[in-house]
Design a protein around this nucleic acid. Structure first.
Lengths: 141, 141
DNA sequence: AACAAATTATTTGTATACAAAATTTTTGTT
DNA sequence: AACAAAAATTTTGTATACAAATAATTTGTT
């Protein structure tokens, strides 16, 4: 079987294309796609712990550490220790991080539409549904 | 918009799931998914240059260097200098690399089927087609 | 032939990403 | 209270990945 017909290859290629498109659109805000994911998580509910954020966006706990480091250095957020559980840290948005909600929200919405524009409404739904089914199914194995 | 409804997030999550499944299946052969991609490329045509391989599997040239290093250390392949163009290197399979063709081919074929098993034949074709359309379309922008 | 431009591969720097181990703290059991 | 087990985060080590810069070589132009 040709490697280029392998489902892992096809998914990886599609994901890379979409990721770089999103990266290019987010670039002017000095935010990466995964950093947008964390911001988005915090816009929804500020002050979550690192573990909560990691679970929400399906990342390993140890991956979060470095990403939060870089976001803290850029002044997007702050780590605060949780008085009730000193193991935990609470991740809190800065003004800068909060103010990005509207512009980044618009950029991501537009990018999303642009990517899905090549499909009809029905195809879009089927495609999104299929991606969810693949991810959910494998995580059960 | 919820980050979990973002097409970039959905694609990334599906890709991660499939990638880790493939990784787990390839693990007993001490080969990673991208290393399988390079092997597969060479089984098809041995002695390709790093650039040819990179283009074939859609990787940046500078990414190839490290992957070939690790594969060379594991004795899967060898770098040979091209007498006709001393800038180029020819990547040549070792016996070990060649002998993996059959067992890895089978593992990947089975993994592929297992991932796609959740779909009907029609859904499979539409899904694969959609992934290609997404990747091809964005690379034109 | 001389030299600019292009090509091939590598190096350097940065960002994800995960696994395994380590650290600190909390929870549960005896 | 003592201590084992679990939980939250970080650290360390390894593997992708890309961008920009570099080095060596080849190609194209004058």
């Amino acid at each position: 079987m040709e490697v280029t017909q392998c489902i892992n290859f096809l998914l990886t290629r599609a994901q890379h294309s979409v990721l770089s498109y999103f990266r290019s659109r987010l670039d002017e805000y000095d935010v990466t796609p995964v950093q947008y994911g964390i911001l988005s998580c915090l816009w929804c509910k500020d002050g979550q712990t690192a573990t909560e954020i990691a679970q929400r966006i399906c990342l390993d706990g140890s991956t979060i550490t470095g990403i939060l480091d870089r976001m803290e250095n850029k002044g997007l957020l702050e780590r605060q220790s949780d008085p009730n559980d000193r193991r935990a840290i609470r991740v809190v948005l800065s003004d800068k991080g909060r103010q990005l909600e509207k512009p980044l929200g618009e950029v991501v919405k537009a990018s999303n539409q642009r990517v899905l524009d090549i499909f009809t409404k029905e195809e879009q739904e089927l495609f999104v549904e299929s991606l969810k089914r693949v991810a959910d199914n494998i995580s059960k194995w």
